[in-house]
Write a protein that binds this DNA or RNA. Sequence first.
DNA 1: CGACCCCTTGAAATTGATCAAATGCCGTGG
DNA 2: CCACGGCATTTGATCAATTTCAAGGGGTCG
Lengths: 244, 244
Amino acid sequence: MATSCFADRLAKHVQLSDAERSALARLEENPRKVKRGAMIQRVNETVTELFVLREGRAMSFVLLPDGSRQILRVYFPGDFIGSASTIYSKAPESLVALSDVVICPFDKHALRRLLEEHPRVAALLFLLSNAERVALTDRLASLGRTSAKARVASFLLDIFDRLRVTDDGVTDSFDLKLTQEEIGDAIGLTSVHVNRMVRQMEQEGLISRANGRITLLDMERLEEIGHYTNRHKDMDFDWLPSQP
Amino acid sequence: MATSCFADRLAKHVQLSDAERSALARLEENPRKVKRGAMIQRVNETVTELFVLREGRAMSFVLLPDGSRQILRVYFPGDFIGSASTIYSKAPESLVALSDVVICPFDKHALRRLLEEHPRVAALLFLLSNAERVALTDRLASLGRTSAKARVASFLLDIFDRLRVTDDGVTDSFDLKLTQEEIGDAIGLTSVHVNRMVRQMEQEGLISRANGRITLLDMERLEEIGHYTNRHKDMDFDWLPSQP
DNA sequence: CGACCCCTTGAAATTGATCAAATGCCGTGG
DNA sequence: CCACGGCATTTGATCAATTTCAAGGGGTCG
C-alpha cells in the first residue's frame, strides 16, 4: 500500500477502506520539494492544480494595493491546500512555503475522479471544508470584535491545537516558525504591536519564549482572554456513509 | 417535477438531470415559515439539521462574552445554510431571520443519501463550499487590513453582487434591510462609525439612500475604495463530472 | 400620545498605527 | 575567529482612526 499523508490525516477521523486509501495515495504520486520562502501559487495566476502539503509549513495570503498583506491561513502537514482552484480559474490567493516543504500537486481532474468513485471520501472532503469554514469564521470574529491581546492569544491557541492534532510531541510548547510581522499579518496588527502584546503576555506569566519556541503557561487564562474555543473536540463523523 | 429553490440556484451554474433535481427537491419537502427576528438555530445547541433558505433573508452570527456580536454571513434565497452542523454536533453559530423567511430544514442523513447517490451534486456542493470559503477570506482581508470606509464599500458591493445572482431586478440599487448597527457588526465597526462612513460616501456622490434603499452611483470608485473583486465572474464548473 | 427603535451629530477617550532608532542574532566570508 | 550585513526584535514618542459616551431628532406602531 502506497503511503498517503492525507489519508493518514483523514484516518484520524474515520476508517478508510483499502480502495479509498490507494485512491488518496494516487493524489500524492508527484511529490515536489519547495524551498522556504518560495511561491507555490501566485494570486491571479491560472490554476488547475491543488496540493497536499506533506512536509513543512505553508501559508496562504493576499496583498492589498497599498502593499499590506493579510495572511489567510497557515497550513501543516496533511492539509489539503489551494482548494479555491476547484471553483475559480484564477487563484484568489497566493501560497508560499514557510519552511522547506514537500507538496504533492495534482490536477483537479484527478480530484473529480476521486469524488466520482469514492462518495464517502467526497463527503469527508465536504465536511473538512466546512470545518475550515468555521475556522475562518472564528478568526473573523476575532478580527472584527476582539482586542489586540485577545487576537494574539487565540491565534497562539489555534496554532497549538492544530499542531497537536497531528504531532503527538506537542504538549505545551511549540515552534511557531513565524515572525512577529507574520503573526501581525495573520491577525490584522502591526509587528510593533504584536511585539508589545507578546511581551506583555510574557510578563504576566501567560506564555514564555526561548529561541522561537513558545510555551503556553496558563492555557485557561489564554482561552479566556482570546475568547477561544477548541473546535476539534466537538467533531462528529458518525453520520457518514458506512464503509463500502 | 417538484420545485426546488436550491436546484434553481445550482442550475445557474451547471445543467442538472431530472433525477438530480428531484433529489434536491426532496430536501425542501418541509418548508417552515419563521418570523422576522426569530432564531432559527442557537449557538451551542445540538443540531442535526441543515436548511435551504427559500424566501427572505437570514444571517449567522456569534456573540462574544462582552456582548458584542460578529455577523458572519448574510444569506439570500437559494442559499444553503447551517452547513457547520455537518461536522459539529453543537452549532458554532446562531442563525436568525432578518425578514420573514421560509426555510426548509432537512436532516443531515438526508444530505448523506444525496451525497451517496448523486456524486455530481456532491462535487457541486463541495465547490460551493469552497466559494463560501473564499468569500470569507475576502472579508477577513477586509477586516484585517482595510479602513472603515473600505469595509463599508466592499460590504455594499458584496451584498449587491450576491443579490444580482438571483434577482434580475437588481441593476444599481437594492434594499439592504440591515440597520447600521448590523452593518457594523458584520464588518467590525460601531454603528456610529458606520453612519459617518455611509454619510461621507453619500456626500461624495458614491451612493445615495432613500428609505432603506441604497443606490450605488459610482461602482468603479467603490470597487477601488473597497479593494473589491467580484468573484462571481470567474467561476468555472466545466471540469465537473459530466451529466449522468 | 407615548414607547421604542434607528439614525444623526458632537466631544472626549482610547487603541493601535506610524515613525524612528537601538539592540540582538545568525550565517557568511575574509 | 572575527567582522559584517541583513533580518527580527525591542523600545520610545507621536499620531490618527475608531470607539465611547451622550444627547437630540424622526419615524412608526400600538
